[in-house]
Write a protein that binds this DNA or RNA. Structure first.
Lengths: 139, 139
DNA sequence: CTATTAAATCGAAATCATTTCTATTTAGAA
DNA sequence: TTCTAAATAGAAATGATTTCGATTTAATAG
């Protein structure tokens, strides 16, 4: 992963705006997944200024579409986002209690794809639950 | 799959209401996935009477939670439901064009689960795209 | 068959995450 | 510096989904 965000944005043909840089930086240092509103709060704290929620939504979606951050589908039907430096093909296990994310490497994606009679455009593979740490604490 | 819906409902400790039976029947005969509103329309046509949307939503969710029908997460963020007679562990490939659903058998779920350091509560595995038939037609 | 009761339904209204809209600003190219 | 397409801001709209209270009903027991 390229941590030179200005350059990263340029390579994606996106303008280098302070808002985008702030969003990327917040996402990078977060160690849990965040909701758009949480991203807004933290961006505003950091920048000491206002950033509109539509801007947050738009950028998170763009960055997610470009594969820079990953989207998390929560059972509560809200969207969350997570910055993952790992560029290899992999999936996530999401702890709903502490909001941490584990990378999962081995998967059957290729095997599954080979069974599909058509062209895959979206693929969702995600496990959600309670990580061992949280399981232990609540036991 | 048990197609004796009254008995099925009893086994799930759900009351056997005309609304539930109508929903199950509509889902069973549908050959594509349906939105809650579409289920409502078809239920009302069939029953020649009104059924409230909250009833539809509640029942689809209950039946989905019990594994009787499966939920489809659409990129447009709406929920759709699909009745699948196949009771074995499997996943789906969903055609966004014609709304048909293919069963996918081989998957790496077990392998993925074994990597997870925690307890899985929800697992989403779904591929969406365009089936071969639709690919061909639009080419 | 009737009484009872918890579950289910109805319809209206509320919710609220997300998106749209339009005016304004700004990054980046010329 | 000028220009322009892209990006942002703020307010407002959207619309799928959920909640609420009142009413009905399925199912059990007498």
């Amino acid at each position: 992963m390229n941590f030179d965000f200005p350059q990263l944005l340029k390579s994606l043909q996106l303008k280098v705006t302070p808002q985008r840089l702030a969003i990327l930086e917040i996402m990078r240092i977060a160690d849990t997944y965040l909701s758009p509103e949480e991203v807004q709060e933290q961006v505003q704290q950091r920048a000491n200024g206002k950033v509109g929620l539509p801007t947050i939504y738009r950028n998170l979606e763009e960055l997610s579409a470009q594969g820079v951050i990953s989207k998390i589908l929560h059972p509560n039907r809200q969207l969350y986002y997570y910055f993952c430096a790992n560029r290899d093909h992999h999936h996530h296990f999401v702890c709903l209690a502490c909001r941490t994310v584990q990378d999962l490497h081995d998967c059957g994606c290729a095997e599954m794809a080979s069974q599909i009679d058509g062209q895959v455009e979206f693929q969702i593979m995600q496990a959600l639950g309670t990580c061992r740490r949280c399981c232990t604490q609540n036991a």
